[in-house]
Design a protein around this nucleic acid. Structure first.
Lengths: 206, 206
DNA sequence: TTGACAAATCTAACGATGTTAAATAATCTT
DNA sequence: AAGATTATTTAACATCGTTAGATTTGTCAA
Protein backbone atom coordinates (compact mmCIF):
# COMPACT_ATOMS: atom_id res chain seq x y z
CA UNK A 1 0.00 0.00 0.00
CA UNK A 2 2.38 2.66 -1.23
CA UNK A 3 -0.70 4.37 -2.54
CA UNK A 4 -1.46 6.09 0.70
CA UNK A 5 2.08 7.31 0.88
CA UNK A 6 1.90 8.68 -2.63
CA UNK A 7 -1.24 10.51 -1.69
CA UNK A 8 0.41 11.98 1.33
CA UNK A 9 3.41 12.92 -0.76
CA UNK A 10 1.11 14.79 -3.06
CA UNK A 11 -0.63 16.38 -0.16
CA UNK A 12 2.67 17.43 1.30
CA UNK A 13 3.69 18.69 -2.12
CA UNK A 14 0.67 20.87 -2.54
CA UNK A 15 1.07 22.17 0.96
CA UNK A 16 4.58 23.24 0.11
CA UNK A 17 3.39 24.69 -3.19
CA UNK A 18 0.96 26.88 -1.31
CA UNK A 19 3.65 27.92 1.12
CA UNK A 20 6.07 28.81 -1.66
CA UNK A 21 3.52 30.84 -3.56
CA UNK A 22 2.50 32.61 -0.38
CA UNK A 23 6.10 33.35 0.55
CA UNK A 24 6.91 34.87 -2.81
CA UNK A 25 3.91 37.17 -2.72
CA UNK A 26 4.45 37.90 0.95
CA UNK A 27 8.09 38.92 0.61
CA UNK A 28 7.40 41.30 -2.25
CA UNK A 29 4.01 42.69 -1.32
CA UNK A 30 3.56 42.20 2.42
CA UNK A 31 0.92 40.56 4.56
CA UNK A 32 -2.19 42.57 3.80
CA UNK A 33 -1.63 42.60 0.06
CA UNK A 34 -1.06 38.87 -0.07
CA UNK A 35 -4.59 37.71 -0.64
CA UNK A 36 -5.84 34.18 -0.35
CA UNK A 37 -7.19 34.61 -3.85
CA UNK A 38 -3.83 35.76 -5.21
CA UNK A 39 -2.12 32.77 -3.68
CA UNK A 40 -4.71 30.44 -5.15
CA UNK A 41 -4.47 32.01 -8.56
CA UNK A 42 -0.70 31.74 -8.55
CA UNK A 43 -0.83 27.98 -8.11
CA UNK A 44 -3.93 27.48 -10.25
CA UNK A 45 -6.21 26.24 -7.52
CA UNK A 46 -9.38 27.68 -6.15
CA UNK A 47 -9.15 29.73 -2.94
CA UNK A 48 -10.95 27.29 -0.64
CA UNK A 49 -8.37 24.61 -1.39
CA UNK A 50 -5.91 26.49 0.77
CA UNK A 51 -8.22 25.98 3.72
CA UNK A 52 -7.84 22.27 3.33
CA UNK A 53 -4.17 22.67 4.21
CA UNK A 54 -4.23 25.63 6.58
CA UNK A 55 -6.87 26.60 9.09
CA UNK A 56 -6.83 30.26 8.06
CA UNK A 57 -4.59 32.99 6.76
CA UNK A 58 -3.02 33.57 10.15
CA UNK A 59 -1.93 29.96 10.49
CA UNK A 60 -0.50 29.96 7.00
CA UNK A 61 1.71 32.91 7.79
CA UNK A 62 2.56 31.62 11.21
CA UNK A 63 4.18 28.70 9.46
CA UNK A 64 6.04 30.94 7.06
CA UNK A 65 7.36 33.19 9.80
CA UNK A 66 8.27 30.36 12.13
CA UNK A 67 10.42 28.82 9.44
CA UNK A 68 12.26 32.04 8.71
CA UNK A 69 12.80 32.85 12.35
CA UNK A 70 14.30 29.42 12.74
CA UNK A 71 17.26 30.78 10.80
CA UNK A 72 17.68 33.60 13.27
CA UNK A 73 17.62 31.09 16.08
CA UNK A 74 20.35 29.07 14.39
CA UNK A 75 22.42 32.20 14.01
CA UNK A 76 22.03 33.01 17.69
CA UNK A 77 22.78 29.43 18.61
CA UNK A 78 26.07 29.73 16.74
CA UNK A 79 27.03 32.81 18.69
CA UNK A 80 26.19 31.13 21.93
CA UNK A 81 28.33 28.15 20.98
CA UNK A 82 31.21 30.52 20.37
CA UNK A 83 31.22 31.88 23.86
CA UNK A 84 30.86 28.40 25.26
CA UNK A 85 34.20 27.46 23.69
CA UNK A 86 35.80 30.53 25.25
CA UNK A 87 36.64 31.88 21.83
CA UNK A 88 35.28 35.34 22.54
CA UNK A 89 34.05 37.52 25.34
CA UNK A 90 30.45 37.44 26.46
CA UNK A 91 29.88 41.15 26.01
CA UNK A 92 31.07 41.33 22.42
CA UNK A 93 28.96 38.28 21.68
CA UNK A 94 25.99 39.98 23.21
CA UNK A 95 26.63 42.96 21.01
CA UNK A 96 26.82 40.67 18.01
CA UNK A 97 23.49 39.19 18.98
CA UNK A 98 21.86 42.60 19.22
CA UNK A 99 23.21 43.57 15.82
CA UNK A 100 22.28 40.24 14.35
CA UNK A 101 18.71 40.59 15.52
CA UNK A 102 18.28 44.06 14.07
CA UNK A 103 19.95 43.09 10.83
CA UNK A 104 17.75 40.04 10.51
CA UNK A 105 14.61 42.04 11.06
CA UNK A 106 15.60 44.57 8.42
CA UNK A 107 16.42 41.82 5.94
CA UNK A 108 13.02 40.20 6.48
CA UNK A 109 10.75 43.16 7.15
CA UNK A 110 7.50 41.39 6.34
CA UNK A 111 8.29 38.35 8.44
CA UNK A 112 9.31 40.62 11.24
CA UNK A 113 6.14 42.62 10.91
CA UNK A 114 3.86 39.62 11.12
CA UNK A 115 5.75 38.11 14.03
CA UNK A 116 6.44 41.11 16.23
CA UNK A 117 4.61 44.18 15.01
CA UNK A 118 1.10 43.18 14.10
CA UNK A 119 -1.01 42.72 17.18
CA UNK A 120 -1.57 39.07 17.97
CA UNK A 121 -5.14 38.25 18.87
CA UNK A 122 -4.57 34.69 19.95
CA UNK A 123 -6.57 35.14 23.09
CA UNK A 124 -9.64 35.63 20.94
CA UNK A 125 -8.89 32.39 19.09
CA UNK A 126 -8.69 28.96 20.59
CA UNK A 127 -5.15 29.10 21.83
CA UNK A 128 -1.54 28.61 20.90
CA UNK A 129 -0.96 30.43 17.68
CA UNK A 130 2.52 29.38 16.67
CA UNK A 131 3.52 33.02 16.62
CA UNK A 132 3.62 32.92 20.37
CA UNK A 133 6.16 30.11 20.52
CA UNK A 134 8.17 31.59 17.63
CA UNK A 135 8.62 34.82 19.49
CA UNK A 136 9.41 33.02 22.72
CA UNK A 137 12.14 30.89 21.21
CA UNK A 138 13.82 33.75 19.41
CA UNK A 139 13.82 35.79 22.57
CA UNK A 140 15.08 32.82 24.56
CA UNK A 141 18.33 32.73 22.59
CA UNK A 142 19.09 36.30 23.41
CA UNK A 143 18.30 35.81 27.04
CA UNK A 144 20.87 33.06 27.34
CA UNK A 145 23.54 35.34 26.00
CA UNK A 146 22.60 37.99 28.51
CA UNK A 147 22.74 35.36 31.24
CA UNK A 148 26.22 34.29 30.21
CA UNK A 149 27.43 37.84 30.28
CA UNK A 150 25.91 38.53 33.68
CA UNK A 151 27.44 35.37 35.10
CA UNK A 152 30.85 36.21 33.70
CA UNK A 153 30.56 39.60 35.30
CA UNK A 154 28.72 39.10 38.58
CA UNK A 155 28.99 35.39 39.12
CA UNK A 156 25.22 35.21 39.11
CA UNK A 157 22.52 35.74 36.56
CA UNK A 158 20.19 37.66 38.79
CA UNK A 159 18.25 40.17 36.75
CA UNK A 160 18.55 38.33 33.45
CA UNK A 161 14.89 38.54 32.75
CA UNK A 162 14.52 42.29 33.10
CA UNK A 163 17.78 42.99 31.36
CA UNK A 164 17.20 40.77 28.38
CA UNK A 165 13.64 41.98 27.96
CA UNK A 166 14.77 45.59 28.17
CA UNK A 167 17.44 44.98 25.56
CA UNK A 168 15.00 43.15 23.36
CA UNK A 169 12.54 46.01 23.64
CA UNK A 170 15.19 48.49 22.62
CA UNK A 171 16.37 46.64 19.53
CA UNK A 172 12.80 45.86 18.61
CA UNK A 173 12.25 49.59 18.72
CA UNK A 174 14.77 50.48 16.02
CA UNK A 175 13.89 47.51 13.93
CA UNK A 176 10.20 48.22 13.90
CA UNK A 177 10.58 51.97 13.45
CA UNK A 178 12.89 51.53 10.50
CA UNK A 179 10.47 49.07 8.95
CA UNK A 180 7.21 50.88 9.49
CA UNK A 181 8.03 54.59 9.58
CA UNK A 182 9.58 54.95 6.16
CA UNK A 183 8.63 58.60 5.96
CA UNK A 184 10.52 59.68 9.07
CA UNK A 185 13.80 61.59 8.53
CA UNK A 186 16.07 59.12 10.23
CA UNK A 187 19.80 59.62 10.34
CA UNK A 188 21.74 57.10 8.34
CA UNK A 189 20.67 53.63 9.28
CA UNK A 190 24.02 52.24 10.36
CA UNK A 191 24.75 55.31 12.42
CA UNK A 192 21.43 55.00 14.23
CA UNK A 193 21.96 51.33 14.95
CA UNK A 194 25.52 51.94 16.10
CA UNK A 195 24.42 54.67 18.46
CA UNK A 196 21.68 52.58 20.00
CA UNK A 197 23.87 49.53 20.44
CA UNK A 198 26.60 51.70 21.92
CA UNK A 199 24.19 53.14 24.46
CA UNK A 200 22.83 49.72 25.34
CA UNK A 201 26.22 48.09 25.79
CA UNK A 202 27.50 50.96 27.89
CA UNK A 203 24.29 50.86 29.84
CA UNK A 204 24.50 47.21 30.80
CA UNK A 205 28.24 47.31 31.45
CA UNK A 206 28.03 49.62 34.45
CA UNK B 1 -26.86 87.12 7.32
CA UNK B 2 -26.23 85.11 10.48
CA UNK B 3 -27.85 82.25 8.66
CA UNK B 4 -24.71 81.13 6.95
CA UNK B 5 -22.90 81.18 10.24
CA UNK B 6 -25.55 79.07 11.86
CA UNK B 7 -25.12 76.57 9.09
CA UNK B 8 -21.39 76.47 9.64
CA UNK B 9 -21.94 76.11 13.35
CA UNK B 10 -24.08 73.11 12.67
CA UNK B 11 -21.50 71.73 10.31
CA UNK B 12 -18.80 72.20 12.88
CA UNK B 13 -21.07 70.58 15.42
CA UNK B 14 -21.68 67.51 13.36
CA UNK B 15 -18.00 67.25 12.60
CA UNK B 16 -17.30 67.19 16.31
CA UNK B 17 -20.13 64.73 16.85
CA UNK B 18 -18.50 62.37 14.40
CA UNK B 19 -15.14 62.81 16.09
CA UNK B 20 -16.58 62.13 19.53
CA UNK B 21 -18.40 59.02 18.42
CA UNK B 22 -15.30 57.78 16.63
CA UNK B 23 -13.11 58.45 19.65
CA UNK B 24 -15.35 56.55 22.01
CA UNK B 25 -15.47 53.50 19.78
CA UNK B 26 -11.78 53.82 18.99
CA UNK B 27 -10.62 53.97 22.58
CA UNK B 28 -12.60 50.93 23.61
CA UNK B 29 -12.40 48.77 20.50
CA UNK B 30 -9.36 49.90 18.55
CA UNK B 31 -8.80 51.06 15.00
CA UNK B 32 -9.81 48.05 12.95
CA UNK B 33 -12.95 47.37 14.93
CA UNK B 34 -14.09 50.95 14.70
CA UNK B 35 -16.08 50.77 11.51
CA UNK B 36 -17.36 53.69 9.53
CA UNK B 37 -20.76 52.07 9.76
CA UNK B 38 -20.55 51.78 13.54
CA UNK B 39 -19.64 55.43 13.85
CA UNK B 40 -22.52 56.41 11.60
CA UNK B 41 -24.97 54.25 13.49
CA UNK B 42 -23.88 55.71 16.80
CA UNK B 43 -24.78 59.23 15.71
CA UNK B 44 -27.83 58.19 13.67
CA UNK B 45 -26.50 59.23 10.32
CA UNK B 46 -25.79 57.19 7.23
CA UNK B 47 -22.19 56.12 6.60
CA UNK B 48 -21.53 58.34 3.56
CA UNK B 49 -22.26 61.43 5.60
CA UNK B 50 -18.95 60.97 7.35
CA UNK B 51 -17.19 61.37 4.03
CA UNK B 52 -18.66 64.82 3.73
CA UNK B 53 -16.58 65.82 6.75
CA UNK B 54 -13.51 63.64 6.40
CA UNK B 55 -11.76 62.47 3.27
CA UNK B 56 -11.44 58.90 4.50
CA UNK B 57 -11.01 56.78 7.58
CA UNK B 58 -7.30 57.51 7.77
CA UNK B 59 -7.82 61.26 7.86
CA UNK B 60 -10.50 60.93 10.50
CA UNK B 61 -8.14 59.09 12.80
CA UNK B 62 -5.24 61.33 11.94
CA UNK B 63 -7.26 64.13 13.46
CA UNK B 64 -8.07 62.10 16.52
CA UNK B 65 -4.49 61.08 17.14
CA UNK B 66 -3.02 64.49 16.43
CA UNK B 67 -5.27 65.99 19.07
CA UNK B 68 -4.30 63.45 21.70
CA UNK B 69 -0.60 63.67 20.94
CA UNK B 70 -0.89 67.39 21.38
CA UNK B 71 -1.29 66.66 25.08
CA UNK B 72 1.97 64.74 25.11
CA UNK B 73 3.67 67.66 23.44
CA UNK B 74 2.34 70.01 26.10
CA UNK B 75 3.63 67.69 28.79
CA UNK B 76 7.08 67.62 27.18
CA UNK B 77 7.00 71.37 26.75
CA UNK B 78 6.42 71.70 30.46
CA UNK B 79 9.45 69.60 31.25
CA UNK B 80 11.56 71.61 28.88
CA UNK B 81 10.42 74.80 30.53
CA UNK B 82 11.49 73.38 33.87
CA UNK B 83 15.06 72.91 32.82
CA UNK B 84 15.10 76.32 31.21
CA UNK B 85 14.39 77.87 34.63
CA UNK B 86 17.29 75.92 36.15
CA UNK B 87 14.92 74.17 38.48
CA UNK B 88 16.25 70.72 37.75
CA UNK B 89 19.09 68.93 36.02
CA UNK B 90 18.97 68.11 32.33
CA UNK B 91 19.60 64.41 32.80
CA UNK B 92 16.80 63.87 35.28
CA UNK B 93 14.51 65.82 33.03
CA UNK B 94 15.51 63.66 30.12
CA UNK B 95 14.67 60.62 32.19
CA UNK B 96 11.31 62.14 33.02
CA UNK B 97 10.68 62.67 29.33
CA UNK B 98 11.49 59.06 28.53
CA UNK B 99 9.16 57.84 31.25
CA UNK B 100 6.49 60.31 30.27
CA UNK B 101 6.56 59.12 26.70
CA UNK B 102 6.22 55.45 27.61
CA UNK B 103 3.52 56.17 30.14
CA UNK B 104 1.58 58.22 27.65
CA UNK B 105 1.76 55.49 25.05
CA UNK B 106 0.49 52.90 27.50
CA UNK B 107 -2.35 55.16 28.61
CA UNK B 108 -3.44 55.68 25.01
CA UNK B 109 -2.60 52.38 23.37
CA UNK B 110 -4.88 52.80 20.38
CA UNK B 111 -3.75 56.31 19.60
CA UNK B 112 -0.18 55.16 19.92
CA UNK B 113 -0.82 52.24 17.64
CA UNK B 114 -2.30 54.32 14.86
CA UNK B 115 0.40 56.96 15.11
CA UNK B 116 3.56 54.90 15.53
CA UNK B 117 2.88 51.20 15.03
CA UNK B 118 0.66 50.80 12.02
CA UNK B 119 2.61 51.22 8.85
CA UNK B 120 1.99 54.60 7.26
CA UNK B 121 1.41 54.47 3.53
CA UNK B 122 1.43 58.18 2.86
CA UNK B 123 3.77 57.80 -0.06
CA UNK B 124 1.01 55.93 -1.89
CA UNK B 125 -1.43 58.74 -1.17
CA UNK B 126 -1.12 62.30 -2.32
CA UNK B 127 1.13 63.60 0.40
CA UNK B 128 1.34 64.92 3.89
CA UNK B 129 -0.85 62.74 6.04
CA UNK B 130 -1.04 64.57 9.33
CA UNK B 131 0.37 61.52 11.03
CA UNK B 132 3.75 62.46 9.67
CA UNK B 133 3.77 65.88 11.26
CA UNK B 134 2.28 64.55 14.49
CA UNK B 135 5.12 62.10 14.86
CA UNK B 136 7.70 64.71 13.95
CA UNK B 137 6.51 67.21 16.49
CA UNK B 138 6.32 64.72 19.33
CA UNK B 139 9.82 63.53 18.55
CA UNK B 140 11.04 67.09 18.26
CA UNK B 141 10.25 67.79 21.91
CA UNK B 142 12.36 64.91 23.05
CA UNK B 143 15.23 65.90 20.85
CA UNK B 144 15.41 69.32 22.43
CA UNK B 145 15.76 67.76 25.84
CA UNK B 146 18.57 65.58 24.61
CA UNK B 147 20.22 68.62 23.10
CA UNK B 148 20.03 70.51 26.39
CA UNK B 149 21.60 67.62 28.22
CA UNK B 150 24.40 67.25 25.70
CA UNK B 151 25.16 70.96 25.84
CA UNK B 152 25.20 70.96 29.61
CA UNK B 153 27.62 68.07 29.49
CA UNK B 154 29.85 68.67 26.48
CA UNK B 155 29.24 72.31 25.71
CA UNK B 156 28.03 71.26 22.29
CA UNK B 157 25.07 69.37 20.98
CA UNK B 158 26.95 67.34 18.43
CA UNK B 159 25.33 63.96 18.03
CA UNK B 160 21.86 65.05 19.14
CA UNK B 161 20.18 63.55 16.15
CA UNK B 162 21.57 60.03 16.53
CA UNK B 163 21.23 60.06 20.27
CA UNK B 164 17.67 61.27 20.40
CA UNK B 165 16.60 58.93 17.65
CA UNK B 166 18.28 56.02 19.37
CA UNK B 167 16.57 56.85 22.65
CA UNK B 168 13.25 57.28 20.89
CA UNK B 169 13.66 53.92 19.20
CA UNK B 170 14.35 52.26 22.52
CA UNK B 171 11.36 53.66 24.35
CA UNK B 172 9.18 53.05 21.35
CA UNK B 173 10.30 49.44 21.62
CA UNK B 174 8.94 48.86 25.12
CA UNK B 175 5.84 50.83 24.49
CA UNK B 176 4.90 49.00 21.34
CA UNK B 177 5.82 45.57 22.67
CA UNK B 178 3.74 46.08 25.79
CA UNK B 179 0.83 47.23 23.68
CA UNK B 180 0.88 44.65 20.94
CA UNK B 181 2.38 41.51 22.46
CA UNK B 182 -0.09 40.92 25.25
CA UNK B 183 0.60 37.20 25.27
CA UNK B 184 4.31 37.48 26.00
CA UNK B 185 5.44 36.64 29.55
CA UNK B 186 6.88 40.02 30.41
CA UNK B 187 8.28 40.77 33.82
CA UNK B 188 6.30 43.26 35.78
CA UNK B 189 5.71 46.34 33.66
CA UNK B 190 7.26 48.93 35.98
CA UNK B 191 10.31 46.75 36.48
CA UNK B 192 10.81 46.39 32.75
CA UNK B 193 10.46 50.10 32.15
CA UNK B 194 12.78 50.92 35.03
CA UNK B 195 15.41 48.57 33.73
CA UNK B 196 15.31 49.97 30.22
CA UNK B 197 15.41 53.58 31.36
CA UNK B 198 18.26 52.75 33.70
CA UNK B 199 20.25 51.22 30.88
CA UNK B 200 19.55 54.13 28.58
CA UNK B 201 20.47 56.81 31.08
CA UNK B 202 23.65 55.03 32.07
CA UNK B 203 24.40 54.53 28.41
CA UNK B 204 24.14 58.17 27.44
CA UNK B 205 25.92 59.42 30.54
CA UNK B 206 29.26 57.91 29.67
C1' DT C 1 -43.73 83.75 -1.54
C1' DT C 2 -41.55 81.34 -4.76
C1' DG C 3 -38.19 79.43 -7.55
C1' DA C 4 -33.36 78.58 -8.44
C1' DC C 5 -29.16 77.23 -6.56
C1' DA C 6 -26.14 75.12 -3.31
C1' DA C 7 -25.23 72.31 0.66
C1' DA C 8 -26.18 68.26 3.22
C1' DT C 9 -27.82 63.69 3.56
C1' DC C 10 -29.54 59.23 2.05
C1' DT C 11 -30.23 54.89 -0.68
C1' DA C 12 -28.02 51.69 -3.28
C1' DA C 13 -24.35 49.69 -4.87
C1' DC C 14 -19.31 48.46 -6.08
C1' DG C 15 -15.24 45.91 -5.47
C1' DA C 16 -12.34 43.74 -2.03
C1' DT C 17 -11.52 40.90 1.80
C1' DG C 18 -11.44 36.25 4.61
C1' DT C 19 -14.15 32.39 5.00
C1' DT C 20 -17.83 28.63 4.76
C1' DA C 21 -21.56 25.34 2.80
C1' DA C 22 -22.64 22.31 -0.37
C1' DA C 23 -21.98 19.97 -4.48
C1' DT C 24 -18.69 17.50 -7.25
C1' DA C 25 -14.52 15.05 -8.71
C1' DA C 26 -10.78 12.06 -7.62
C1' DT C 27 -8.84 8.40 -5.20
C1' DC C 28 -8.55 4.54 -2.22
C1' DT C 29 -10.48 0.33 -0.02
C1' DT C 30 -12.90 -3.82 -0.28
C1' DA D 1 -17.11 -2.55 -9.82
C1' DA D 2 -19.38 -0.35 -5.47
C1' DG D 3 -18.97 2.25 -1.64
C1' DA D 4 -16.39 5.36 1.37
C1' DT D 5 -13.03 8.73 2.11
C1' DT D 6 -10.31 12.53 0.51
C1' DA D 7 -9.60 16.45 -2.33
C1' DT D 8 -11.25 20.29 -5.01
C1' DT D 9 -14.57 23.48 -6.97
C1' DT D 10 -18.55 26.58 -7.46
C1' DA D 11 -21.29 29.68 -5.26
C1' DA D 12 -22.21 32.37 -1.72
C1' DC D 13 -22.03 35.03 2.92
C1' DA D 14 -20.77 38.75 5.85
C1' DT D 15 -17.78 42.53 6.31
C1' DC D 16 -15.12 46.26 5.04
C1' DG D 17 -14.05 51.15 3.01
C1' DT D 18 -15.81 53.87 -0.38
C1' DT D 19 -18.45 56.10 -4.39
C1' DA D 20 -22.37 57.47 -7.67
C1' DG D 21 -26.54 59.32 -7.98
C1' DA D 22 -30.87 60.62 -6.29
C1' DT D 23 -33.08 63.37 -2.71
C1' DT D 24 -33.88 66.25 0.87
C1' DT D 25 -32.77 70.48 3.24
C1' DG D 26 -31.44 75.04 3.61
C1' DT D 27 -30.28 79.82 1.62
C1' DC D 28 -30.92 83.81 -0.99
C1' DA D 29 -32.58 86.70 -4.76
C1' DA D 30 -36.60 88.05 -7.69
Amino acid sequence: MGTKERREKHKEGLRQLILDAAIELFVTEGYESTTMRKIAEKIDYSPPTIYFYFRDKAELFDNICAETFGKLDQQMELLRAEVATEKSEPLVNLEKALRGYIDFGLRHPNHYTVTFILTSEFEANGGESRKKTTGLKTFGCMRQMVAEYLISKNGTDVGVEETSQALWAAIHGVTSLLITQKGFPFVEQKMLINKLVEILIKGVRN
